[in-house]
Design a binder for these strands. Structure first.
Lengths: 327, 327
DNA sequence: AAACGAGGTCACTAGGTCAC
DNA sequence: GTGACCTAGTGACCTCGTTT
């Protein structure tokens, strides 16, 4: 046990005082992160670099990358706790920005299982992708899955679970998260069809024996719904918390279910409060509309799953990445 | 605790408001120092004397002597922060002028250890040297070491460290600083051989059993390199910050290493920015050339160290000053 | 009762402003 | 140019509720 172990993983200058917001760090960096969330006084930094102590933006980025995560505890339906809600959203927004950045610019060395990813509670180690790195359908699916896993891993409710429960939660959630982010991206691009950032189709154009209508449902159904509702970024962020904190997934222990349902209540009330504040009297309707998106996510995942089974029966055995082995 | 304690150590007229730029002083003297650095409107004073309040030069000198020290915090690579860089250089230039003055005109009573010097964070107390004060090799080495220590002590990074880390940093740095200043002096005099200000040779002419070539290496190698590169005063100042903020020295705690590496990054980027501004497209080359000087400093120190060990084995036990006891 | 982590408080200092 | 005053960011320290 070197003294290295007890240094703050953000500033690496002071001794760590323990875990704060899920990360081993010092009291100063803890307070810095808290204040940044509540005051939101983080200007972007020109040269993205190692400028701890010099640049507040880079220090905050280090917090985000290290997985620092804030969850409101107070009753969010009380108006005076509005700050907690916006701090929570600010936190998620930066986690999501990091996810997008990693999706676009990074690769991952190796082929881990979800169990391995769930084991350690450190963020995944992405590396910068060379400009000429060849992307194909498989690579896009893989990096989308890994960045989704990395995003989900940072939620406080995930870190509260034991390794087994965490494993099951991630295993049965991350693919839905991938689908959901794909659809949000399509929506932001103003497109009705899901594609990867470079235009690659998410599924091959034709699969023998399946109607085109079925395939188009996979490509378009969720994106269409998201588009129709004009789901905002903030709503997406809060929904990602609500959806992927599901106490009903198989394999999760009784105590795990308790934790998840506690957190899901928090996230749900955050979303409700956001809707009420933003849409006034139509807030409750908006709230239920948003929740209904989960049905479409699920339906889409089931369709993809069916497509996948068909492919694996008739096609040649493909070199499937381990995170996509669900049984 | 007399009220004396809380008086401004610069003007001694107002109450001190706390520590500013590393020195206990009042708000007025703090602002004076800051403005002086940024506006650089300090004309020299005719009668060097006690004219605080009357003469801006003497007031500024008091700031420098008291150890007031400014370190840029902003990102120096942004052009708009050019003022910070030049303020930093202006500050260092005056600290260095003081060092030279003390080297030429002062003596130090006593024989402190580096640990003792590191303990208090006040400047060393030099006294004016009588005109007829007899200087010899030992005296020159001693005063060179002490003025180097006094110069290094004022850096902000030194004052950030705890007493133990400060001790180790000074102990393993000040002699290199001495060598470096010796070489700069030779270069300024247009000489290729290091000597003390009155012409005294830095090492005795002959040492039995050692080749003349080896001794000449000590006398000339670093001066030759400095001469070859035509290292300017500003470059010397910035290099002195980069070199003597070494996080890798033995004995320094983990947190101390963190502090030093943070500051070294600041100093390094200051030097790089200076090179880019001054040399345009050849700036990066100049930057690496300058950094390479450190190798020569180190090599020279090692040679001297070897020479010293030889002398101490065979010669009579000399009355070595305590700052030169490195183990 | 001891350890832990969230959150609050306060003294401190760099830097800015403005009347003189 | 000066200095009293103000502001914002910081980090050491404290409190309190929870967990073991």
């Amino acid at each position: 046990m070197s003294s290295e172990e007890s240094m703050c993983s953000i500033c690496n200058v002071r001794e760590s005082s323990g875990f704060s917001y899920g990360v081993l760090c010092c009291g100063a960096c803890k307070m810095f992160f808290r204040r940044a969330l509540f005051v939101k006084n983080i200007d972007t930094c020109r040269q993205k670099g190692e400028c701890i102590k010099k640049c507040r933006y880079c220090r905050f980025q280090k917090c985000i990358q290290a997985g620092m995560s804030y969850t409101p505890t107070e009753n969010l339906l009380e108006l005076k706790n509005n700050d907690s809600l916006s701090a929570f959203i600010f936190n998620l927004a930066h986690q999501d920005e990091l996810r997008k950045y990693q999706l676009m610019n990074c690769r991952y060395d190796g082929d881990p299982t979800v169990a391995e990813i769930a084991e350690h509670n450190t963020p995944l180690n992405f590396t910068k992708k060379p400009d000429d790195f060849p992307m194909n359908l498989g690579e896009w699916i893989f990096i989308t899955g890994l960045t989704s896993l990395n995003y989900l891993k940072k939620f406080n409710h995930v870190n509260m679970l034991n390794a087994s429960d965490r494993h099951f939660l991630l295993k049965y959630s991350f693919f839905d998260m991938s689908i959901f982010t794909d659809s949000m991206r399509a929506c932001e691009k103003g497109e009705g069809v899901i594609t990867f950032p470079d235009g690659t189709e998410v599924i091959r154009a034709e699969v023998p024996g399946l109607e085109q209508k079925f395939l188009n449902g996979i490509r378009c159904r969720l994106a269409a719904r998201v588009n129709e509702l004009k789901v905002t970024k903030e709503e997406f962020l809060l929904l990602s918390a609500v959806f992927f904190c599901n106490p009903g997934l198989p394999g999760i222990s009784e105590s795990g279910r308790g934790i998840l349902s506690t957190y899901q209540k928090i996230y749900t009330s955050a979303l409700l409060q956001y809707c009420l504040l933003t849409y006034q009297q139509t807030g409750p309707t908006r709230f239920t509309d948003l929740l209904s998106v989960l049905q479409v996510v699920t339906k889409t995942r089931q369709d993809i799953s069916y497509l996948f089974i068909l492919n694996s029966i008739r096609g040649p055995p493909s070199a499937l990445k381990k995170i996509f082995i669900f049984r």
